Simulated assay, not measured.
Amino acid sequence: MTEPLPDLLIEPVVRAALAEDLGRAGDVTALACVEADARLSVAFAARKAGVVSGLACARLALQTLDPEARFETLVGDGARIAAGAVLARAEGNARAVLSAERTGLNLLGRMSGVATLTRAYVDAVEGTGARIVDTRKTTPGLRHLEKYAVRCGGGVNHRFGLDDAILIKDNHIAACGGVAEAVRRAKAFAGHLMKVEVEVDGLDQLEDALRHGPDVVMLDNFSLADLRTAVGLAKGRAVLEASGGVTLETVRAIAETGVDVISVGALTHSVMSLDIGLDAI
Results as ranks from 00 to 15, higher is better:
273 S>P: 15
175 A>H: 00
277 G>F: 08
83 A>T: 10
227 L>R: 06
143 R>Y: 04
183 V>E: 02
272 M>S: 15
59 R>D: 07
247 T>D: 03
162 L>R: 07
185 R>C: 10
196 V>P: 00
150 V>K: 04
34 V>C: 07
64 T>R: 11
33 C>P: 01
75 V>S: 00
137 K>W: 09
134 D>A: 08
152 C>W: 01
9 L>I: 02
276 I>K: 07
18 L>P: 09
268 T>I: 14
52 V>I: 07
62 L>H: 10
26 G>K: 03
228 R>N: 09
73 T>V: 13
211 R>Y: 03
200 V>E: 07
202 G>L: 02
121 Y>R: 02
104 G>C: 07
192 H>E: 09
270 S>G: 13
179 V>E: 03
142 L>A: 05
86 V>N: 08
20 E>G: 14
18 L>Y: 12
33 C>M: 15
62 L>N: 10
117 L>C: 04
162 L>Q: 05
151 R>Q: 09
281 I>F: 15
279 D>C: 06
203 L>C: 02
55 L>V: 05
48 K>G: 05
69 A>W: 03
59 R>G: 06
43 A>V: 14
158 H>W: 01
152 C>A: 13
111 M>I: 02
20 E>W: 14
166 I>C: 03
238 A>G: 12
61 A>Y: 11
20 E>S: 14
278 L>I: 09
100 A>W: 10
10 I>P: 01
39 R>N: 11
8 L>I: 11
172 H>L: 05
43 A>S: 15
122 V>K: 06
18 L>R: 12
275 D>H: 03
266 A>D: 08
121 Y>M: 03
240 L>S: 13
64 T>H: 12
25 A>M: 15
46 A>D: 06
112 S>P: 06
257 T>R: 06
273 S>R: 14
192 H>V: 10
86 V>T: 15
195 K>G: 00
271 V>F: 14
146 E>T: 02
26 G>S: 04
48 K>V: 12
65 L>I: 07
218 M>D: 00
209 A>E: 05
231 V>E: 11
186 A>Y: 02
229 T>N: 13
80 R>K: 11
109 G>V: 09
193 L>R: 15
249 E>M: 00
78 G>N: 00
26 G>T: 03
40 L>W: 06
200 V>Y: 06
61 A>C: 11
247 T>V: 01
158 H>E: 02
237 R>H: 09
260 D>V: 03
105 L>S: 09
134 D>E: 09
94 A>Q: 12
71 F>L: 05
161 G>S: 11
57 C>E: 08
128 T>S: 13
221 N>D: 09
67 P>C: 04
11 E>M: 12
120 A>S: 14
23 G>K: 12
199 E>C: 01
37 D>T: 14
211 R>I: 04
67 P>H: 07
97 V>Y: 11
226 D>Q: 14
176 C>A: 15
180 A>H: 08
196 V>Q: 00
